[in-house]
Design a protein around this nucleic acid. Sequence first.
RNA 1: GGUCACGUGGCCGAGUGGCUAGGCAGAGGUCUGCAAAACCUUUUACAGCGGUUCGAAUCCGCUCGUGACCUCCA
Length: 496
Amino acid sequence: MNQDLKVFNTITRTKESFEPLHPPFVGMYVCGPTVYNFVHLGNCRTFTCFDIIYRYLTHIGYKVRYVRNITDVGHLENDADEGEDKIAKKAKLENLEPMEVVQRYTNNFHMVMAQLNNLPPSIEPQATGHIVEQIEMARKIMDNGFAYEVNGSIYFDVRKYNVHHQYGKLSGRVLDELIAGTRELDGQGEKRNPEDFALWKKAAPEHIMRWHSPWGEGFPGWHLECSVMSQKYLGQQFDIHGGGMDLKFPHHECEIAQSVGYCGQEPVKYWLHTNMLTVNGARMSKSAGNGILPHELFTGNHPLLEQAYSPMTFRYALLQTHYRSTMDISNDALKAARKGYTKVINGLRIAKKMHYVPQPNITINNNLVEEINQIIADIYKGMNDDFNTAIALSALLNLLKKINAIHNGQILSASIDEATFQKMIQTYIAFTEEVFGLREEPRTDIDQVMNVLLGVYREAKLNKDFGMVDTLRAQFKTLGIVVKDMKDRIEWAYEE
RNA sequence: GGUCACGUGGCCGAGUGGCUAGGCAGAGGUCUGCAAAACCUUUUACAGCGGUUCGAAUCCGCUCGUGACCUCCA
């Protein structure tokens, strides 16, 4: 809160000072996944970027309520009337209950988020859990004259809305140009105009996901859930709404229209949009089929990948890029990220064990103190400039150089004052772990390490160096491990 | 076709009027039983052509190239 944070607001296309509506509280809504398939790395990029934003806002003292939804109904294959619900389609395809599909991919999503060390949001509402509220909002929008009913479906009347409001202001579109550029799609017969969008859709007889409504059995439109759930948990106006750039139009545009149509107020103060992850220069997308899945990255089991890359390697690669820039995934970039990540984590292990050693006869090097304080300031400066993690990370690496130099004895800790020393260590640890969300990934398991140690043990036995043998046994015992000398081999077990 | 981005050194990727981003790779050095790490130093830039300016990678124009959105997608 004591930081001069600036954020790039999509709707004004400028960097603005971040001033929450009700400090110290911050309401942040991020469009979550539609759980009809595995999330791919592009999806992961967005959620990880917002995780870091969430972490930084928290770090600088805000009380953030972070809402990220699960879309489990209403997301159609296309905009035509016969467009199938994505969940329902998958359910039919795999012969599952729709909620089985939802559960399966929600579980996968949560697992991947945990692997990437993304914190869970404060609230993770599901669209199907808010059908009543969605019906209510659709009804109110219709009462207010911004929607109409046709054959049990409710559509938002974009042209009517546009008379006194500006549909397209977020994505920089003008309705007349949109209309001029629209191709006539088949199956839009029910809508008055092609740019109208569904708030509620009548369920065809074969449609398996359906709820009662004043207009008969049906299901909610995709855009409506976000308006409903953000408003329910964050209020009619809240601070941050995030999502991928591809959601700007039409999804977020429609959200604005719905909220205004519902209560006359625009819902969001700051719109934040993350850029796309690309593969060979082309956007990663489910429909293009060029998506790389997290487990494919983590195992290296993908034609484009030369090797496996860990979740933290990927997270580090994300940190090196600003969230509003496109990022291309490549083996070279990932390999470089892996090394950089390792460097940071080795530094973390050092920093956690480092102590200040006072030496009265050493004079304080004021230039060094100033340099270190400047680097710390640069880390915050980077993050305060629209969450520029690339800048902040580069400064963090500069800080790491000082930490390593002290650790190696190339710089004496006594040559800086203790307060600066502590600040240096704490800043390094806090940014690495709390803000950037990097953590140590064990590369070996205990068996591999024990094999090496038991080799030493075996050697000592062969040499009849029973002093060493006893010492090893005793040390293992303090760790809760017993060494078992079998007839023809040596094993270990946890002490009972 | 409309709208909007982008083009930075071997690679990735910040910056956006004057001041070394950073990482990976390369070179040299310190350290070192070997090796690694670490630290120090260092080479290679701003697509092209014009213009504005005392000064431009940074602003403006044009050209070329790439991409995104306009239809579901984070």
